[in-house]
Nucleic acid binder design. Structure first.
Length: 895
RNA sequence: GCGGGUAUGAUGGAAUUGGUAGACAUGCUAGACUUAGGAUCUAGUGCCGCAAGGCGUGGGGGUUCGACUCCCUUUACCCGCACCA
C-alpha cells in the first residue's frame, strides 16, 4: 500500500512491507516473470491541510516536499520500484480519472435482477415503459409511479427521483459532524463519539452531502471474500463491518392513525411475545404519535437524550425511556401494545423502531421490568439449560399456530404468514451504511459536479476534466460547515447562472483505484488502457497495515466491482493475496515524575513514592537504551534539563550509592510523541541498506508485531561480513575455480531449497536464518569455490541487492545479478547415503543410529533393537511394538 | 456481548503434512588474541540435579506408538465491532 507522505518522514516500521514486496518482486524477476513493483503517494488528506493551517504553507507545497523526502529515504533502501509509473493522488492528471469514476457512479444504478450496475439511461427507459413498481434496484426511493406519472413529472421531479437510484447520490442525512475539525467524518473515523484524529467530540448533524451506494454491493463484497487469499482476521473484520443479517420487515398498525410503524426483526418467530414497541427518540413519527397527555414527558426525554453525548451513552447504559401515549396493534395477537421511545433503539440501524419481545431479548427484558410492561414467555428453552436468551433454539409456546415448533422452523413459518397477511416480508439487513463522501475541506478532489438554477446536479463531462482545485491561501474550514471553496466566488458561480459543488472528496477516493493506474500510469485517454489492464489483471500480492482493513480495502473492492460491471477491469476482486504487515514497535523510556513536588524519581525507588506519572524521555538521552537497566547518566540528566526550558531546574532523585537515574522501559508504538522513533536513514548510514533490509526481515514473521532492537542488527552485520569473507582473504578477492566437494554442493542445494520454499510462503525471517546457517557451514568447510558462491550470490540478490551486485561483478560478470536467472535446486546433491535416526523408547528419545538411506524397515527395526543404548532400555521388558517411519524416526514401545 | 488472533529459553523467534522442541540471532558466562574494542575468534548457555536421571511449548483433560502441532475445556493478553433489534 502506498504511503501518506507525512511531515515526520519514514520510521523503521514503514519500509517493512516494501522490503518484503521488493524481495518477492526481485525473486519473481529472477525466475523469469515480468514484475510490476510500483510506488506512489496517497497525497490528499487532512494532515497536510492541518499543517497548512498551522504554518501557512500550502498543502500542495508541503505534500510535494514530504513526498520528495520520502522518495529520498526510499531510494536509500535499494527498492526496485518502477518510478516511471509513480502515482500521486493529488496530481490533476491522476484525479482527472478519480473525478471521472465518480461521474460514472453518478450515471449508474444497481440493478438487482442482473446483479450489476447499469446505466441511468437504462433505468429511465424502464420508467418510461413501466414506471418504477417492477424495477428491482438498490434505491432510497419512497414513491411508486406509473409510466404516465413519470412522463408527467417535471425535469426537476424526475431528477429528484433518479437521485434515489444513482450509485453516487446526494441526500440529506445524519452525518458525524466534528465541530473542532469542522468536517464530516466517516463512521470509521469516529471512535466512541470522538474523532479518531485529534480526539474531538463528534455530534450527529443533518447536512446535504454526496454518498456512495456501497450497500448495493454488500452481498458481493461479503461473498467474494471467499475467493481472496487474505487472513481470516481481515475477512472477519470486513464481514462484521458489512454485518449481514436475515430477518423480517414488518408494518404495525397504529390505533387511531393511518401511519404504520415499520420495524425490522431477526426473530419474527417471537412476535406473539411482542408486548410493546420502541422508537428511536429521533424517529420521524414520534411527534405525530405522542398524545397531549404524554407530550411533556416525551419532550423532556428527547431533551435528556439530546444532552447526552455518545460517550455518556457508552459509559452508562441506563434503562431509560418514555411512553408516547400511542398504541400499536400486534398483528398476530391483535392486542393493543404501547409505543415507547428509548435511546437504546438507534435511528441509524434497521428502521429505527423495534417490536419489543421482553421474554427473549436482554434489553427488552430490562426495559419491561423497569417500566412494568407485560412479559409473555414464547420460547421454551428448558431443554437447553446453557442457552442464552438470544440463542435461536427451543420450542415455541404461547404462540398460536407456532406452538411446538422449533425456533428455526417458526421463523420460516412466520415469514410465510407475514407475506400472506401482506404486512411485511422476509428481508436481509446490513449494518453497513452508504458512505458519506463529502468533505467540507480544501485539500481533496473537487467534485466534478455543478448545479443548474433549479438545483439539479449534473456531471462535468470527461472532456472538461480534470476540474482542478483552485489555488487559494484561505484553507480554513468554517464552523457553518461550508468548504473553503465556497469562499471563492469565481469558483462557485458559473456563467450560465449555475453553481459548482464546493465540497471535496475524502482521502479514500484517490486510494480506491490507484493500483489500476500503476498499470498504465501515463495514459491521458483512459484511467487505464484496456491492453494494460488485460495484461496485468489485478494485484497478485498486496502488503499493508491492518489500519486499512475496513475503509480503504472495502472502498477499493467496491470501486473495482463497479468497474468490473462496466467491463473496464477483467477481475472481480482487486487484491488476490494480501498480507498485513505487523507493526515494528519501539521501546519507550519513561522517567517517573511526581507532580506534587516536581521531582523525578529513579525507577528502582519508585515503590517508595506515591502519585508518580511516567513521562516519556527522548531515547537519545538514555544509556543502555532498550535494556532492563536503561538509565540517564549525569550527562543524560543534563541533556534532559536542556531539552525544554521548563525542565531546566528539575530535581532528580537517585539512590544514595548510585549516579544513575534509572528509567522504566516499555514496548509500545514507535511515535514522535514518545520520542522513540528510529530513523532508517541513520541505520542505513551505519550498516548499509542490505543489512538494514535483512535485519528487518530477520526480526520475525512479516505479519507479527515485534519490537525494534538496534543491538540485534550486529548478528546480520556479522553474517554479511562473513559471507563477504568467503570470497576474500584479507580483503583480496580469492575465489577458486576448483570443483566443489559433495558436502559443499549439499550445503548449496539445501540452501537453495530452503530459501526458495520460504520466499514462496513469505517466511522471510527463516530465509535469513538459512543464509546464516549456509554461511556458517561453508566457513567451516573453508569453501571458496565459484561453483558454490556464484549461485549463492544470486540467491542472496533479492535480499541484499547491493552486496550481491558487487560480488557478482567481482566474480567477473558484466551484466547485473538482478537480470540473471535463479539457481535451480537439484535433489541429487542433497540425497544422503546414510540417515541418522532418532530412536525413541515409549516416545522419549534415548539413542540415535545411522542407517543406509535405502535400508528396509525390517533391517532398521532389527538393527535398532540390537543397538546397545536401546538394549539398556528394553532389557527385561516386553517389546510390544516397533514403529519405523522411513527417513524420520524409530519408536519402540515397551511395557 | 459478538467476531478474530496470540501464548515456546533471559529476549526476537524456529519446528511447512503429527515424527530428535528451542534452528538462527541477541543477551549472558568463560577463555584466546591483543597497539583494551560497541573488534575478532573458541567453547558453553531450556529448567532441576554432582551424576544417573527427571521435568519442560499458558493451565487441565483427551485422541495417538508419538502432540508446540489434532479434539474438548479453561485462563491471560492483543485487535476489530458493539444498546445492531
Amino acid at each position: 500500500m502506498f504511503p501518506y507522505p507525512s511531515g515526520a518522514g519514514l520510521h523503521v516500521g514503514h519500509p517493512l512491507g516494501y522490503i518484503a514486496s521488493d524481495i518477492y518482486a526481485r525473486y519473481k524477476r529472477l525466475t523469469g516473470f515480468n514484475v510490476l513493483h510500483p510506488m506512489g503517494f496517497d497525497a490528499f488528506g487532512l494532515p497536510a491541510e492541518q499543517y497548512a493551517l498551522d504554518t501557512g504553507i500550502a498543502p500542495g507545497v508541503s505534500t510535494e516536499k514530504n513526498a520528495k523526502r520520502y522518495r529520498e529515504q526510499l531510494d536509500k533502501l535499494g527498492f526496485s520500484f518502477d518510478w516511471s509509473r509513480e502515482v500521486k493522488t493529488c496530481d490533476p492528471k491522476y484525479y482527472k480519472w478519480t473525478q471521472w469514476i465518480f461521474t460514472e457512479l453518478f450515471e449508474h444504478y444497481y440493478d438487482q435482477t442482473v446483479d450489476k450496475a447499469l446505466s441511468i439511461a437504462h433505468l429511465v427507459s424502464q420508467f418510461e415503459d413501466d414506471g418504477n413498481a417492477k424495477v428491482k434496484a438498490a434505491n432510497t426511493c419512497e414513491t411508486t409511479f406509473t409510466a404516465a406519472e413519470w412522463k408527467a413529472m417535471s425535469h426537476k421531479e424526475q431528477q429528484d427521483i433518479l437521485m434515489n437510484y444513482r450509485l453516487a447520490y446526494r441526500s440529506v442525512g445524519y452525518v458525524n459532524w466534528c465541530e473542532e475539525l469542522a468536517t464530516v467524518l466517516a463512521n470509521d473515523q469516529v471512535k466512541e463519539g470522538i474523532s479518531e484524529r485529534g480526539g474531538h467530540p463528534v455530534i450527529q448533524k443533518a447536512m446535504w452531502q454526496w454518498n456512495l451506494r456501497i450497500t448495493a454491493y454488500a452481498d458481493r463484497l461479503l461473498y467474494d471474500l471467499e475467493s481472496v487469499d487474505w487472513s481470516s482476521a481481515l475477512k472477519a473484520q470486513q464481514s462484521n463491518w458489512i454485518g449481514r443479517s436475515t430477518g423480517a420487515q414488518l408494518f404495525f398498525d397504529i390505533e387511531g392513525s393511518n401511519e404504520k410503524i415499520e420495524i425490522y426483526t431477526t426473530r419474527p418467530d417471537t412476535i406473539f411475545g411482542a408486548t410493546y414497541m420502541v422508537l428511536a427518540p429521533e424517529h420521524p413519527l414520534v411527534a405525530q404519535l405522542t398524545t397531549d397527555a404524554q407530550k411533556q414527558d416525551i419532550e423532556d426525554y428527547i431533551a435528556y437524550v439530546g444532552a447526552r453525548s455518545e460517550i455518556d451513552r457508552m459509559a452508562d447504559k441506563q434503562v431509560t425511556g418514555a411512553f408516547t401515549g400511542a398504541y400499536a396493534i400486534n398483528p398476530f395477537t391483535n392486542k393493543k401494545i404501547p409505543v415507547w421511545i428509548a435511546e437504546y433503539v438507534l435511528i441509524g440501524y434497521g428502521t429505527g423502531a423495534i417490536m419489543a419481545v421482553p421474554s427473549d431479548d436482554e434489553r427488552d427484558k430490562r426495559f419491561a421490568e423497569k417500566f412494568g410492561l407485560e412479559i409473555i414467555d414464547v420460547v421454551d428453552k428448558s431443554a437447553f439449560p446453557d442457552a442464552t436468551l438470544s440463542d435461536k433454539i427451543g420450542k415455541l409456546i404461547n404462540s398460536g399456530f407456532l406452538n411446538g415448533m422449533d425456533v428455526l422452523d417458526a421463523i420460516a413459518a412466520t415469514n410465510e404468514k407475514i407475506e400472506e397477511m401482506q404486512i411485511g416480508k422476509a428481508k436481509v439487513n446490513y449494518r453497513m451504511r452508504d458512505a458519506g463522501f463529502s468533505r467540507q475541506r480544501y485539500w481533496g478532489e473537487p467534485f466534478p459536479m455543478t448545479y443548474d438554477k433549479d438545483g439539479n446536479a449534473q456531471i462535468i463531462p470527461l472532456e472538461q476534466l480534470p476540474l482542478e482545485l483552485p489555488e487559494t491561501d484561505d484553507y480554513k474550514p468554517s464552523r457553518d460547515g461550508r468548504s473553503p471553496l465556497s469562499r471563492i466566488d469565481s469558483w462557485i458561480n458559473l456563467p450560465d447562472g449555475g453553481t459548482r459543488e464546493t465540497d471535496t472528496m475524502p482521502a479514500v477516493a484517490g486510494s480506491s483505484w490507484y493500483y489500476l493506474r500503476y498499470m498504465d500510469a501515463n495514459n491521458d485517454d483512459a484511467f487505464v488502457g484496456k491492453k494494460a489492464v488485460n495484461y496485468w489483471q489485478d494485484v497478485d500480492l498486496y502488503i499493508g497495515g491492518t489500519e486499512h482493513a475496513v475503509a480503504h480495502l472495502l472502498y477499493a473492492r467496491f470501486w473495482h466491482k463497479f468497474l468490473y460491471d462496466n467491463g473496464l477491469v477483467p477481475t472481480k476482486e482487486p487484491f488476490k493475496k494480501l498480507i498485513n504487515q505487523g507493526m515494528i514497535q519501539g521501546v519507550i523510556e519513561f522517567a517517573y515524575y511526581q507532580k506534587a513536588t516536581g521531582k523525578y524519581i529513579s525507577a528502582e525507588l519508585a515503590a517508595q513514592y506515591e502519585d508518580l506519572t511516567p513521562l516519556p524521555v527522548h531515547i537519545n538521552f538514555v544509556t543502555d537504551y532498550g535494556s532492563d537497566n536503561s538509565y540517564l547518566s549525569a550527562d543524560g540528566i543534563t541533556q534532559y534539563k536542556n531539552w525544554r526550558p521548563e525542565y531546566k531546574n528539575s530535581e532528580f532523585v537517585l539512590a544514595d550509592d548510585s549516579d544513575r537515574f534509572f528509567t522504566k522501559s516499555e514496548v509500545g508504538k514507535m511515535s514522535k510523541s514518545k520520542f522513540n522513533v528510529i530513523n532508517p536513514d541513520e541505520v542505513v548510514a551505519e550498516y548499509g541498506a542490505d543489512i538494514f533490509r535483512m535485519y528487518e526481515m530477520f526480526l520475525g514473521p512479516i505479519e507479527a508485531h515485534k519490537p525494534w532492537d538496534t543491538k540485534g542488527i550486529s548478528g546480520v552485520s556479522k553474517f554479511m561480513r562473513r559471507f563477504w569473507d568467503l570470497f576474500h582473504t584479507n580483503d583480496t578477492f580469492t575465489v577458486s575455480d576448483d570443483a566443489p566437494s559433495k558436502e559443499e554442493l549439499k550445503v548449496l542445494h539445501a540452501t537453495i531449497k530452503r530459501v526458495t520454499d520460504d520466499i514462496q510462503r513469505f517466511s522471510f525471517n527463516t530465509c535469513v536464518s538459512a543464509f546464516m546457517e549456509c554461511s556458517n557451514e561453508l566457513r567451516k568447510l573453508k569453501c571458496n569455490k565459484r561453483a558454490i558462491l556464484e549461485p549463492l550470490t544470486i540467491l542472496l540478490a533479492p535480499f541484499a541487492p547491493y552486496t550481491s551486485e558487487d560480488l557478482w561483478h567481482q566474480l567477473g560478470n558484466t551484466a547485473s545479478v538482478h537480470e540473471t536467472s535463479y539457481p535451480i535446486f537439484e535433489e541429487k546433491y542433497v540425497k544422503e547415503d546414510t540417515i541418522e535416526y532418532p530412536i525413541s523408547i515409549n516416545g522419549k528419545k534415548r539413542a540415535t543410529a545411522s542407517f543406509a538411506s535405502d535400508a528396509s524397515k525390517e533391517e532398521i527395526e532389527k538393527a535398532a533393537l540390537a543397538n546397545e543404548a536401546v538394549q539398556k532400555w528394553t532389557e527385561g521388558k516386553t517389546i510390544r511394538k516397533v514403529i519405523v517411519v522411513p527417513k524420520r524416526m524409530i519408536n519402540i514401545v515397551v511395557g
